[in-house]
């Protein structure tokens, strides 16, 4: 399903306004470790970056470079070994309503219907059934899943499942949306559809995004900045594309893909630890 670029917001009163001058997300000297049997292995060290209101950071790197770990730290689900994550200027203590995360497989609960999955966060906050339905009505329509409300996840296609996961995340009205390879298991066309959809939602909602991917094309298309993980501090690469259908086929896009490929090669020397 293809939709035109619409900029009317799903949540009329939302829009990510924050304190002037303070970046939405600020990461300083972040270090994470992972247990490998009895050994403790450093995943990355000294990561430092900022994401402004409405920014789009893509995180790319080979398997084991700590992409998912980083995302879990940014969501407040995991504590870093060292370093600080500041959200709206104050240190992140744990999961927060303004930060939504979409997991690789969508994380849909298979025993709940689409509606129950989308409104899960709202029902945890003790919102009544009718209120919940009203709150997500526009969102479901926007994502093209209104007709699937009573279905169970097993009755959905891969693309539909990820739409539901996106709906659940956006029902929280997040200022920051974290995505962990959300389109990795989809076919090429469905993948592009969902990338376009994500861009439309970003344009209308104005939330910031941090997206983990191992696709160079996806990174180049969706990011205005890329963080290439691989060794130690990682490398930040400004991309500055204007996402949209023209950009996907533009020389700038391909140029950015090549820059990312080069950065990936640099991030992991031939005899390196990756």
């Amino acid at each position: 399903m293809r939709m035109g670029i619409a900029t009317s917001s799903i949540h009329p009163s939302s829009g990510a306004k924050g304190v002037e001058g303070v970046p939405l997300l600020e990461v300083q000297d972040l270090t994470a470790v992972r247990k490998n049997g009895d050994r403790v292995v450093e995943v990355f060290r000294g990561l430092t970056f900022k994401v402004p209101q409405g920014g789009r950071l893509v995180v790319i790197g080979r398997s084991g470079s700590g992409k998912t770990t980083l995302l879990w730290i940014l969501s407040g689900l995991l504590r870093p070994k060292e370093g600080v994550v500041k959200f709206c200027g104050s240190p992140l203590q744990g999961p927060r309503e303004e930060i939504a995360i979409i997991f690789q497989h969508g994380g849909l609960l298979p025993w709940k219907t689409v509606m129950e999955n989308v409104t899960l966060g709202l029902s945890l906050r003790r919102m009544g059934r009718r209120e919940r339905a009203e709150a997500v009505e526009g969102l479901l329509e926007r994502l093209g899943i209104s007709h699937l409300m009573e279905r169970l996840p097993r009755q959905l296609s891969g693309g539909e499942r990820q739409r539901v996961a996106i709906a659940r995340a956006l029902a929280q009205r997040p200022k920051l949306l974290l995505l962990d390879e959300p389109f990795a298991s989809l076919d090429a066309l469905t993948r592009e559809d969902l990338q376009d959809l994500l861009v439309e939602l970003w344009l209308s909602e104005g939330m910031a995004m941090v997206l983990v991917t191992h696709s160079v094309e996806e990174a180049a298309f969706l990011g205005d900045e890329a963080l290439v993980l691989g060794s130690g501090r990682g490398e930040l690469i400004p991309l500055g594309g204007k996402p949209g259908r023209e950009y996907r086929r533009s020389p700038t896009m391909w140029h950015n893909c090549n820059r990312l490929r080069e950065a990936l090669k640099r991030s992991c020397p031939p005899k390196g630890p990756c």
Binding site: L77, E97, F103, L124
Partner: peptide, 12 residues
């Protein structure tokens, strides 16, 4: 674990 992380990320 993804189901549990989902709930935790929603503040459960």
């Amino acid at each position: 674990p993804e189901w549990i992380l989902t709930l935790r990320s929603l503040g459960a």
